[in-house]
Amino acid sequence: MNLDERMLTAWRGQTRHDLTLARLTERVRRQRRRQRFQRGLEVALSLVAIVIFGHALLSGTMAPAHWLILPFFAVFLPTIWALTLRGPRRRPEDASEAPGIYARLRMAQLRAGLRDLWLARRAALALVAYAVLAWGGAMILGDVGWRAPAWLLLVYSFLWLGGTHWLNRRLRGRWLREYRSVRRVLSGVRL
């Protein structure tokens, strides 16, 4: 058997018999449900924050916890949503484009993703800085009503920083590798 025949035999020998139409459809539907849930969660969290603060502001029942967290949300939410809506998201159907076009789309998506990660790191650090300042202020100037939420804010801000750091470590290396690789490919490809 020559190399061609052996390669062909090996290539055709790699099969899957368990992927029926019903299974394929179920897998795709499950993933789409998961994606919709994630997007729904993002919207719901934003709406909950707006409702809680809006209600407290309008009804005049702002507690120390509201005052401590409000400045952060007032900056954080609009920034995150502006970036989410503006940046090119990864759309699965883009993969059906010609390789050159897909590479350009992918590069834009990766650039946006890397920028979002950078912003997330900066936002987490800003939250920690703000929480430390707020905690210091509450400890020096505030009473018990201010100190308890200040502690809570401080703990949450460090948890947020840890989570952001974990996400950053998980995604940034992969995205950066792909970004550099696509950039190298595009610099040598004529569309």
């Binding site: 897998r27 993933q31 789409r32 993969a95």
Partner: peptide, 15 residues
């Protein structure tokens, strides 16, 4: 494979 299946599902109207 999962990623490819999802992309195929979404992209079929373009074919």
């Amino acid at each position: 494979l999962q990623e490819i299946l999802l992309a195929t599902w979404e992209a079929l109207p373009r074919l």
